[in-house]
Design a protein around this nucleic acid. Structure first.
Length: 897
RNA sequence: GCGAAGUUAGCUCAGUGGUAGAGCACAUCCUUCACACGGAUGGGGUCAUAAGUUCGAAUCUUAUACUUCGUACCA
């Protein structure tokens, strides 16, 4: 590349075209493709499949950037990498999406108007048309997934796995149909699992109601409730048998306040003595605990609610047909009118809310399919014993706790979109089977029902179950159901799983169980739980709050690389992260810095990949720091510390390379410079860039690829893209050098940079403009190379540095003590003795406090005796250093008179 | 109720026993031929509070307060 061409490059980096170009090229060249026949060691990740209805949000960016870093780094390390992408059919969300479209039609329609078959077809059509959105967004982020292997949880290759899993678990007796209390969503009209119900503290009222004694209406029992609208379904009042105040009521009967009927007072330990009035109304149809009590006492179950949450109680015409919340107020009105309301008070309790529809769920007695979880012990052991590693480790506790108190999973949903339950009922027994309170493998053996991945041969004599399976019943198979036999042989179990801790039960725990049950072992070796991204007020990102930044918008303004880098830089390993767009801007600024540093190199002519000859301490210094960077990067990634990884890359490049090294060597590149200095500097730059771009590539894949090519490095690797080029070895830096020489060089370089800082500082103290060219005189105390004085002048913004071991400064000349030696800054005719006196006095003051502190420490007997020798030694040196400075300043002050 | 994580500069966060850090923001200066998406300098912190362990604590222990999350059958 010719210099004059490069200098025509724009001054600011424009990510848009570069990123698009490389995304296309990577795809064109099949760079993301995983080869199951490769003899390289395998590295694999399956993507947590986003909902097919989803659009990319900032959580996805965090999650997938991490996966991409891991995958890209693994490729550089010579692994055969599979990152398997795909989407989840997301039963409820997707069905709701299409139902919404139907409702918008004129006239509006429901799925029942359309019919099951037609409706499912409509959802498929919708999926084909809109389902690719999030996949395309992931591509824009630069994700290096093997897109040829994109999977969908309802693919023709995936669905049979789901049915097979169901069938096997059924045959094993782990799946059964039963009439049980479930969480019922009155809006979506389906059962939900316990995990889909969010317990939400909410403000409600606690009503205390009088239940009159059957034989003696003047006396009444007080009962507290938050749900008076279900009072017509009361079948008993329970008190604690150990409650002395309640003993007299036992065996009596009281009148139910609405739809008046006598009901018994029974004794049950469930009732807490100190709470409320000590008496609990028992409504078995509408409360989980009450249901258990009802079963225990053989009580009647009276259901007074319709599936959609309206009162169904013709015996109470005032409430019949009313919405459950309106009925709550109305029922209290009726009770008050009867003089049966003792009091009402404000109250806060936990209400179960549907995760999907956001309305309070109803406990409801319902016929559903349930799963007793398989391989619970194996799953618990795997994490407990470290066969699967959780990071951060503390999530293991949450996981173990859930497994300990695990309850059967309600897996049937009253939906149409999803995997239909692979169960068929004999037509001639249909009515009988419908009523059966329990169906299991015995009924299949008896030929009453049929369960299998394929429909029964004489399907016309059977009728299939209407329900679909919970979406998670398909996603829990994801790590292996997405792979064919060949792929499984190479890539299962997967290496890493990267996901949010919010789906530890929904997904992670269930996948582990499924792995042991169906795939012969754990599904992954490591789980990395990301932080949850919040807004600056600490709130969760949500559509309704409108606080969720659009990643596509961020990409268009900061570049995908900038977004990735900025986000990683603030993503801590264990806690939540507050999203601040300023941080993303940092990522963009960094990309620009990198681009310009490379542009600067390109202006100097062609690059080479020859090893760098070492000309000066500054060259050795930067190469040695680069070697450290290799180590830091490897260590940080090994510990999944992505912010440490990013921070190390950032500070090496910006501070060490650009601010110090490049500024120190610029003189070598100017006209008339020593040719060997020029060669050494260019070769060092090329070496640094070659290694650095490779280290940075996993997190900023596009810009590094572009610069790698511009610098001509790709051409030297047979045109291979950086992403497929093996990582340069740290050991190739500084070959054949003694560590002692390297550390000497680092000491000199550090002294140089420190001295430059002190001079700049001195200039600022004298209010000299940065661009004011002063002269420096150095009285050296450290042996260093010939080039150092010139570099000092360059770094400090001086015209030159004269080395004069016997220099005597004119009175009042500003000076500073540096590790290189004493540096004077003669100012022609501008010496302000008073100002200099003041400056020195101020500095002396600071130093005195440091000396005092240090002396106090060293005169402490127990410190000197008990602290390790090196710490004491260090403290002594520190004190000596301060004292030297003090003497120097005092001499100067004295000289000023 | 129980459990977990957190509390460090105005903001977002690093920092696990030995002189408190980064970036942003702020103030002053600089458009010097890679970069103003930049450079230089500077101000700014009783490391939530209290007690303890230690020669020495942001760091280890314990308690307290607050924040967030998970979990529990409280009408």
């Amino acid at each position: 590349m010719m210099p004059h061409v490069m200098s025509e490059l724009p001054k600011a980096y424009e990510p848009k075209h570069v990123e698009q170009k490389w995304q296309e090229r990577w795809l064109r060249d099949g760079c993301f493709h995983a080869d199951p026949h490769s003899n390289k060691p395998a590295y694999s990740i399956v993507i947590p499949p986003p909902n097919v209805t989803g659009v990319l949000h900032i959580g996805h960016v965090l999650n997938n950037t991490i996966q991409d870093i891991l995958a890209r780094r693994a490729r550089q390390e010579g692994k055969e990498v599979l990152w398997l992408p795909g989407t989840d059919h997301a039963g409820i969300a997707t069905q709701a999406r299409v139902e919404k479209e139907l409702a918008k039609e004129n006239p509006p329609r429901t799925r029942f108007d359309v019919g099951r078959e037609e409706f499912v077809k409509m959802v498929w059509d919708w999926k084909e048309e809109h389902g690719g959105i999030i996949i395309n967004q992931l591509k824009k982020l630069g994700c290096s997934c093997d897109w040829e292997r994109e999977r969908f949880t309802m693919d023709s290759s995936y669905a049979p796995e789901v049915a097979r899993a169901f069938t096997e678990l059924f045959r094993e007796g782990l799946i059964y149909r039963g009439l049980k209390m479930v969480n019922w969503d009155p809006v979506l009209l389906t059962a939900l699992s316990d995990e889909e119900v969010i317990m939400t503290p909410s403000k409600s009222k606690l009503y205390t109601i009088r239940y009159r004694l059957e034989d003696d209406p003047e006396h009444y029992l007080l009962v507290a409730t938050t749900r008076p609208e279900t009072i017509m379904a009361d079948v008993a009042v329970a008190v604690n048998p150990n409650d002395p105040r309640m003993a007299k009521w036992l065996g009596k009967r009281v009148m139910r306040p609405l739809v008046e009927t006598p009901i018994p007072v029974i004794a049950d330990e469930h009732v807490e003595i100190g709470f409320g009035t000590g008496a609990l109304k028992i409504t078995p149809a509408h409360d989980r605990v009450d249901f258990e009590v009802g079963v225990k006492f053989g009580l009647e179950i009276i259901d007074v609610l319709t599936p959609d949450g309206h009162i169904n109680c013709p015996a109470c015409p005032e409430l019949h047909g009313m919405d459950r919340f309106e009925a709550r107020d109305k029922s209290i009105e009726l009770i008050r009118d009867k003089g049966l309301l003792e009091k009402e008070e404000a109250y806060e309790n936990n209400v179960g809310v549907s995760q999907r529809s956001d309305v309070p769920i109803e406990p409801r007695l319902s016929m559903q399919w349930f799963l007793k979880y398989p391989c619970v012990h194996e799953a618990a052991d795997a994490v407990e014993k470290g066969d699967i590693t959780f990071r951060p480790a503390h999530w293991g506790k949450t996981y173990a706790h859930w497994l300990e108190s695990i309850r059967d999973w309600c897996i049937s949903r009253q939906l149409w979109w999803g995997h239909r339950i692979p169960v068929w009922y004999r037509k001639d027994l249909a009515e009988e089977l419908k009523q059966a309170t329990k169906l299991d493998v015995q009924d299949a053996d008896a030929g009453r029902i049929y369960v299998g991945p394929e429909p029964p041969a004489d399907v016309e004599n059977w009728v299939q179950d209407e329900d679909a399976l919970d979406t998670w019943f398909s996603s829990w198979l994801w790590p292996f159901a997405t792979m064919d036999a060949e792929c499984r042989a190479k890539f299962y179990p997967t290496t890493d799983l990267v996901t949010g801790p919010d789906i530890i039960f929904f997904w992670v725990a269930r996948m582990i169980m499924a792995g042991y049950r169906f795939a012969g072992g754990k599904p992954f070796a490591n789980v990395f739980f990301t932080s949850i991204v919040r807004d600056l007020l600490g709130r969760k990102m949500s559509k309704s709050l409108g606080n969720s930044p659009d990643p596509l918008d961020l990409i268009s303004r900061y570049g995908a690389d900038g977004l990735r880098f900025g986000l990683m830089r603030i993503a801590p390993t264990g806690t939540d992260v507050k999203f601040d767009e300023k941080q993303i801007e940092e990522g963009k600024n960094f990309a620009n810095k990198l681009y310009n540093a490379v542009r600067f190199r390109l202006m100097q002519g062609e690059t080479s990949t020859e090893p760098a000859p070492h000309f000066s301490a500054v060259h050795l210094d930067i190469l040695s720091k680069l070697r450290d960077l290799h180590e830091q990067v490897t260590e940080a990634l090994g510990k999944y510390e992505f912010n440490a990884y990013t921070q190390a890359l950032y500070s090496f490049f910006w501070n060490e390379y650009c601010s110090l090294f490049l500024e120190a060597v610029k003189g070598d590149l100017r006209e008339g410079a020593d040719p060997s200095a020029r060669n050494a500097t260019l070769a060092t730059i090329d070496t640094v860039l070659r290694h650095y771009l490779a280290l940075l590539a996993p997190i900023m894949p596009h810009i590094t690829e572009e610069l790698w090519e511009s610098l001509g490095f790709a051409a030297r690797h047979a045109g291979k893209p950086l992403m497929l080029t093996e990582l340069p070895k740290a050991e190739s830096l500084l070959p054949g050098l003694e560590e002692e020489d390297i550390s000497k060089a680092r000491i000199i370089a550090a002294a140089l940079y420190d001295a430059a800082n002190r001079v700049r500082n001195l200039k600022a103290e004298y209010n000299l403009a940065t661009n004011k060219n002063v002269h420096l005189v150095l009285r050296p105390t450290l042996p260093f190379g010939d080039d150092i004085a010139a570099r000092l002048a360059l770094l400090a913004g001086a015209k030159g540095t004269a080395i004069e071991p016997a220099y005597t400064a004119p009175k009042g000349t500003p000076s500073t003590l540096t590790p290189l030696g004493e540096i004077f800054m003669p100012l022609e005719g501008l010496v302000d003795v008073d100002a200099e006196k003041a400056r020195i006095s101020k500095e002396l003051e600071k130093i005195s406090t440091e000396i005092k502190r240090s002396q106090a420490k060293l005169s402490n007997e127990s410190f000197v005796q008990r602290a390790p020798a090196d710490v004491v030694q260090q403290e002594k040196e520190r004190l000596a250093d301060w004292q030297g400075k003090k003497e120097h300043l005092e001499t100067m002050l004295a000289a000023l008179g």
